[in-house]
Simulated assay, not measured.
Amino acid sequence: MSDSSAKSRPRFHRAYSFGIVTAGLFLVSWAGQFVFQAIAVRNEADQHGSSFSWSEFFPQFLSSTFENWQSEFLQLIWQAAGLMLFYFWGSSQSREGEERVEAKVDALLEDRGIEPARFVRDMRARADGKS
């Protein structure tokens, strides 16, 4: 690896800072869930006159963890995939955005003294190789 490529690449902690922070927050929250659920299970066992059992706690902990993950990931996937599908299908919101951008481009062309319809024809002709 040359010196110039080594200098242009950011250090690991800078390049992956978002992932590192996200992983750190995940681990802290998961550890918090573990501790507080263990306390709740121990208190419940004490109330019922039984003793705390790790073999009973771990299935509960893993079950609640996967239940939370399933709920959150399904919501996230639906939001990302659903929004992508609606944008692809041309929902009213995505059409509105395209119309606004097109109107702004037309206004800029007119401001420069260029007729938007002629500009489109010229660009299509160039794309077809008819310049």
Rank of each mutant, 00 (worst) to 15 (best):
S131D: 15
V120M: 10
Q33D: 02
E96S: 13
S94E: 03
P10N: 05
S51K: 03
A31T: 15
G90M: 04
R14E: 10
F52S: 00
F57N: 03
M84F: 12
K7F: 05
W54R: 02
L25D: 06
P10A: 09
L108N: 09
S55P: 07
A107Y: 05
F12S: 03
A80E: 06
N43F: 06
M1H: 09
F73E: 04
F18N: 07
Q70H: 13
H48V: 12
I20C: 01
R112F: 11
S50L: 04
Q47G: 13
V105Y: 02
Q79P: 03
W89L: 13
A15R: 15
R95L: 14
Q60I: 15
A127V: 05
S17V: 02
I39Y: 00
G113K: 14
S2R: 01
S2P: 03
S63D: 15
Y16S: 02
F26E: 08
A117D: 14
M84V: 15
Q70R: 13
F34V: 01
Y87D: 11
A80C: 08
E67P: 01
A125H: 07
A40S: 11
V21E: 08
F86Q: 11
Q37S: 15
F52W: 01
A127W: 03
F88D: 14
A103M: 05
V35I: 09
W30S: 11
F26D: 08
R11Q: 10
A81P: 03
D111R: 09
A103L: 06
